[in-house]
Computed example of a mutant assay.
Amino acid sequence: MTKYLHIAHPDNFILPLCDFIIKSKELEDHKFLFFSNQIEDRNYPLNSVFYISSPIRKNLINNLILFYRLCNFSDVIIIHGPTAAIFFKIFPRFTKKLVWIIYGHELYSMIHGIKVKRGILIRDSTKFTLKRAKKHLTHIEGDSILANKILESKAVFHYSPIYLSNVVNTDAFAPTKIEKKIKILVGNSNSPNNDHHTIFNELKKFENNIEYILSPLSYGNDLVYKETVKKTGSYLFGDKFKTIENFMPINEYNKVLSDVDIVVFNHWRQEAMGVTLTLLSLGKIVYVNPNTTSYKSLKDRGFKIFDNNLLFLNGPTIQRDVLDNKSLLEKYYSKEMLIASLKSLKI
């Protein structure tokens, strides 16, 4: 039986996945090595979850011994994002077992030469490690193609929804019916990557067809950009412009999403996939930047997702057919697919 080791930072994506895998009767021999021991006790079974002790340098010898022992025992090593790069530089033999879950943001950091705060050692170790990955685990094939291009590597793409945040329930699927007045969601956070201002300026000419524009601004930490979005939205649309500035319980947030008609994202790179899938599962008409790897990936699999330029040219009152999205979501973004993609992962 194949033995799997996940190496990750225990965040809001990783911990639910860890819980799911450990409790699943279909996924055996998965262990987790977390690069932090500063998390609450979750009562994991014995020998299923291990921790790199902090501070890492102070506990370096014990951390290296633990890393070596777990990697040596495993057949497949799955790193979630660019994690543990220096450890693989120290023990390069383990890269022959390596599978890299691509987050997306790390690709663009490499493209644009964004400096890593901890310096050149981290940056070089990251490239050294990621270049040697044998497989890429992602649901966006374009990210795998881009990674191989950037790193001049030959990793094989392996499809997976990856996280429970990408697993959707289609019970509430109800295709949007366009009326005379449209409720529009613009962006998903207060990050400049959303490019709210371009969308606002394009939508201004269709103001008479708009009931309201809603922009969630609770996520992210660019408070200056957040204020410019609020000022621009209010200036252009007055009382028709609304924001979400506080975090909401997920059920309450999904209720808000269910009330909108169309969604407009203009991120210049792959981003906001979790909320995009949720919106598709609700039957919403979703417009995105066509230059992203996520747009191409979804279109290639048959999803009804639309080029922003169609909206900017024709306005928001055009009815779009999204019926096929329900069956496609059930095929590609179900728990069954998540389990199957992990069970079939081999080196």
Rank of each mutant, 00 (worst) to 15 (best):
E106R: 02
I65V: 06
Y253R: 09
M110L: 13
G302F: 13
V286H: 04
A133S: 13
P249V: 06
A84P: 01
F50C: 09
I339P: 12
S258Y: 08
I250E: 03
V167E: 12
N63G: 02
V263Y: 02
N209Q: 13
L27S: 05
S48D: 10
G220M: 02
S53F: 04
I39G: 03
F206D: 00
V275Y: 08
R132E: 09
E28N: 14
V168D: 06
P82L: 10
L323V: 15
L60T: 00
T228V: 14
T176C: 01
V116A: 12
F247V: 14
L151H: 09
L98V: 12
D195E: 13
V156A: 12
G233A: 06
V286T: 09
T292R: 03
F87E: 09
F20Q: 06
S297F: 02
L338Y: 09
E106N: 02
T129A: 13
I262C: 00
D29E: 15
L64M: 13
P175N: 02
R93S: 11
E245P: 10
I120Y: 01
L70M: 04
L345C: 14
L313C: 15
K127M: 05
I145S: 09
Y163S: 09
L310H: 04
K284P: 14
P45N: 00
E202Y: 00
Y333V: 00
A340F: 05
F13A: 08
I39Q: 04
D307R: 02
Y332E: 01
S297P: 02
R42C: 09
K135G: 15
K299W: 12
H112R: 05
E336Q: 15
L338P: 05
S281F: 13
L107V: 08
N63A: 03
I101M: 12
M1V: 03
R301T: 04
E271L: 08
T138D: 09
L313E: 14
G283K: 09
I178P: 07
E202N: 10
T170I: 01
T138A: 11
